[in-house]
């Protein structure tokens, strides 16, 4: 019963964990070109559009803590930004389709870009010279991150929705057998 109640939460956590791992592997291979791709908005898509507010918020908070521990970002950056992104998604969820769509992807792109710009601004204080020298590489990383989000964002949301539907079918089947 408890598992059934929290299956959306568990699936979201697992999916975020796997995606985070896949992103780590991708960045490991891109490191040779000094490129790191970050797509924080993708981790709140499902939680913001499909989960209850508190469950979604917990997913984003935990994912943020995992990100902060794994990346050399300012202390608590993702722990603060992911729940904020979730709040924005949750606020607009009545206007967006639960399965995604153009509105969702546009909002995700805007929020992702905003978060990354904020991250770059907070990290730029550690630069020993003008940021202008690094702008081409930063812009390339931003563009590739946005492109990756555009390419896999809706698929990732769909996978999580399908996983929940599958487990629901299993639960119903198991319940039917037991009665």
């Amino acid at each position: 019963m408890l598992l059934r109640q929290y299956k959306g939460f568990l699936i979201a956590m697992l999916a975020n964990g796997f995606l985070s791992l896949a992103l780590t592997e991708l960045n490991h291979h891109l490191a040779g070109w000094s490129i790191t791709l970050l797509i924080p908005a993708i981790f709140v898509l499902y939680a913001g559009l499909n989960l209850h507010y508190l469950q979604g918020l917990t997913v984003c908070l935990l994912t943020g803590l995992f990100h902060d521990a794994a990346l050399p970002v300012p202390e608590g950056f993702f722990t603060l930004t992911l729940p904020t992104l979730h709040l924005i998604f949750h606020h607009f969820r009545s206007k967006l389709h639960k399965k995604g769509g153009l509105g969702t992807i546009l909002l995700a792109q805007t929020l992702n870009l905003g978060t990354l710009i904020l991250l770059h601004i907070s990290l730029s204080s550690g630069l020993t010279e003008s940021i202008v020298r690094h702008l081409p590489l930063i812009l390339l990383q931003l563009f590739l991150s946005q492109l990756l989000l555009f390419l896999i964002g809706l698929y990732f949301l769909d996978i999580q929705r399908k996983a929940v539907t599958l487990t629901r079918a299993r639960f119903v089947e198991a319940k039917g057998r037991s009665t």
């Binding site: 960045n27 490991h28 000094s34 790191t36 990346l71 990290l123 550690g126 990383q141």
Partner: peptide, 11 residues
């Protein structure tokens, strides 16, 4: 295990 190299970090 993995490399983290970008404009901001070299680890």
């Amino acid at each position: 295990t993995h490399r983290q190299i970008s404009t901001w970090w070299h680890e």
